[in-house]
C-alpha cells in the first residue's frame, strides 16, 4: 500500500463560545488513499465545515492526529501551515474566489508567487499548462468578468492544480452553478482523477454530486455515520450527453 494522503485518527475539535463549549467534531477517523475521489457529505451542523477547515490546514485539531502526506499538521505553526497549504493543497471554492480585474493567467500564477523555488519563467509555463489542462488555453488573458461561472470555476481548478498538490480540496465547488455546468465541472474533476490520478476530496451536501465520486463519507453531529465505496460511479460525461438539448441555450 502506498503512502496515505490523509490519515485521521480520533480527531476532535472543540470551540469555546463564551462559557459553552461546542464540540464540532467528536472523534473522527478515516484515511484517504492516493488517487481516491472522496466526497464528504453532511447537512449543516454536521461538522462538515470544521472538517474541511482542518483538512485544508486552515485549522488545527483540538485532539487526535491528522497526517497530511505524512506530515503531522497538529504540530505546525501558523507560518508552517501556510507553507504546507502552498505545497500540498489545491483549494476550489464555491464562490471561485478569483482576484477581480486580474487575468486568468495571473490568477493561476498566484500560488506560485508564494513559492520562492519557482522562477518566473517556470511560473508562466506551469500556469499556461494548468489552464490548458482545464481547456482554457485560449482564454489566458481574459478577466474574470469576461468569463462565465463555469469558466471561472475552471480557472479556479487550474489555480488549484498549478502547484501540483497531493490533494485537491473542493468546497461545494458546484454550488453556484446550474446543472449542466455542474456536470461539466464534475466531468473535469473525474477526468483529472481517473486520467491523471489526482486525489480529490469534495465537500458537498448534494447526494447528486456524491454519486460521481468513488467513495462517500457522511458526517452527522460531528461523527462519521457512513463511510462507503461507491459501487456504481456515475460518469459526468455521460450525464452531460444525456441532458436534453433544449436545456442547452
Amino acid at each position: 500500500m502506498a503512502n496515505k494522503i490523509v490519515s485521521i485518527r480520533d480527531l476532535k475539535r472543540e470551540f469555546r463560545m463564551g462559557v459553552e463549549t461546542v464540540r464540532a467534531l467528536k472523534g473522527v477517523s478515516f484515511d484517504v488513499e492516493p488517487g481516491e475521489f472522496v466526497t464528504i457529505m453532511g447537512s449543516s451542523g454536521s461538522g462538515k465545515t470544521t472538517m474541511l477547515n482542518i483538512l485544508g490546514c486552515l485549522d488545527k485539531p483540538s485532539e487526535g492526529t491528522y497526517l497530511l502526506d505524512g506530515v503531522d499538521v497538529g504540530k505546525l505553526s501558523r507560518n508552517e501551515l501556510a507553507v504546507l497549504r502552498n505545497h500540498k493543497i489545491g483549494f476550489v471554492f464555491q464562490s471561485y474566489n478569483l482576484l477581480a480585474r486580474t487575468s486568468a493567467l495571473e490568477n493561476v500564477e498566484l500560488p506560485l508567487l508564494y513559492n520562492s523555488a519557482v522562477s518566473s519563467k517556470q511560473r508562466h509555463e506551469r500556469a499556461v499548462k494548468a489552464l490548458q489542462a482545464v481547456k482554457l488555453g485560449d482564454r489566458i488573458d481574459h478577466l474574470p468578468n469576461q468569463l462565465s461561472g463555469g469558466q471561472q470555476q475552471r480557472v479556479a481548478i487550474a489555480r488549484a492544480l498549478v502547484n501540483e498538490p497531493v490533494m485537491i480540496l473542493a468546497d461545494e465547488a458546484t454550488g453556484n452553478l446550474d446543472t449542466r455546468t455542474s456536470y461539466e465541472i464534475m466531468a473535469l474533476l473525474q477526468e483529472l482523477n481517473q486520467q491523471q490520478g489526482k486525489t480529490i476530496v469534495f465537500v458537498t451536501h448534494e447526494p447528486d454530486i456524491a454519486a460521481f465520486s468513488s467513495r462517500t463519507i457522511t458526517l452527522r453531529d460531528g461523527e462519521v455515520i457512513k463511510d462507503s465505496q461507491n459501487q456504481q460511479v456515475r460518469s459526468a460525461r455521460e450525464m452531460l450527453a444525456s441532458l436534453p438539448v433544449a436545456a442547452d441555450y
Partner: peptide, 10 residues
C-alpha cells in the same frame, strides 16, 4: 483569506 489559503504567510 484567499491568499492565505493558497499559502501566503502572515
Amino acid at each position: 483569506g484567499l491568499r492565505m489559503s493558497i499559502g501566503a504567510r502572515g
